[in-house]
């Protein structure tokens, strides 16, 4: 019997340290299918580390990841998880030895063994979804602006219709107008796919646009979680400080 809102992904007590540095101290997180969760938190609190653990790119020291109810621990389970998820990296992480269309259709070419002509056609269709012209297809990533790179990375993340997409700071480094356009694209494409999304961002405008729910990571744990509508009257000093962008408060600035 299928439970209606069984989470697509669940992190249970995830711990991660680098040498003496304890970054995650027991992160608990669940996301229901089709829902959009935004993780906020100060620089260097381990937001990127959290989603790298979720994707099996880093092995947690303790705790577990459940994908669709199954523990994602063995190589096989992690591969299954990756087949059904997409990821937009903080820096784009486009393959700079390949053209834009080869980047976008990477999984088609090298995982699903689709022919090159068909793969290119589908890459161009997906580029159109993120408002990039077909003429961009044959460029190299290095020839694109930062905003265009983000769009290509977004196209690469959605081409195989994932059920869960991770976005690591999709709008950082973009001007407010381009950032808003990227936010719109994310909302639009996630809706179109019916996918769940976990987004990391510092940008409160993005949070309000993208999130169904918001979780705050602080000192290695999720210290608050609630619907985006509760953000302004959360009664939580950490959230208030973050939402209003003040240096004074319980969170120490990372300088």
């Amino acid at each position: 019997m299928i439970v209606q809102n069984a989470p697509i992904i669940e992190l249970r007590g995830v711990h991660k340290a680098f040498g003496p540095k304890q970054v995650l101290r027991g992160v608990d997180l669940t996301v229901a299918p089709g829902k959009s969760l935004v993780i906020i938190g100060g620089s260097g609190t381990g937001k990127s580390v959290t989603i790298k653990c979720a994707l099996g790119l880093l092995a947690p020291d303790k705790g577990e990841i459940l994908f669709d109810g199954e523990p994602a621990k063995s190589a096989k389970a992690i591969n299954a998880l990756r087949r059904r998820t997409g990821m937009l990296f903080q820096g784009g992480a486009l393959f700079d030895s390949m053209t834009v269309w080869e980047n976008v259709s990477f999984v088609l070419l090298y995982r699903d063994h689709v022919g090159r002509a068909e793969a290119k056609k589908r890459a161009i269709e997906t580029l159109a979804k993120v408002r990039l012209p077909a003429s961009a297809a044959d460029l190299r990533p290095a020839e694109l602006s930062g905003g265009m790179q983000k769009r290509v990375a977004l196209a690469r993340a959605i081409i195989a219709s994932p059920e869960l997409i991770f976005f690591d700071e999709p709008t950082t480094g973009l001007d407010p107008i381009t950032a808003d356009a990227v936010n719109n694209l994310i909302v639009e494409q996630v809706k179109a796919l019916g996918a769940a999304a976990i987004t990391i961002t510092h940008d409160m405008a993005s949070v309000r646009k993208i999130a169904d729910e918001v979780a705050m990571l602080h000192e290695g744990r999720i210290i608050w979680r609630g619907p985006v509508s509760a953000l302004d009257n959360s009664g939580n000093a950490h959230i208030d400080q973050f939402v209003n962008g003040r240096a004074e408060g319980p969170i120490q600035p990372a300088i």
Binding site: K52, L55, G56, L57, N79, R82, R83, T85, G86, M87, F89, Q90, G91, A93, L94, F95, D96, S97, F106, V107, Y110, R111, R156
Partner: peptide, 25 residues
Amino acid sequence: AEVGAMRVTEQIDALLTLSGRPERF
């Protein structure tokens, strides 16, 4: 240098999330 640049710009992580295996690819 090429592989190292791919490592530090997370291209190798990206390859893994796209079901590519660095040792093969």
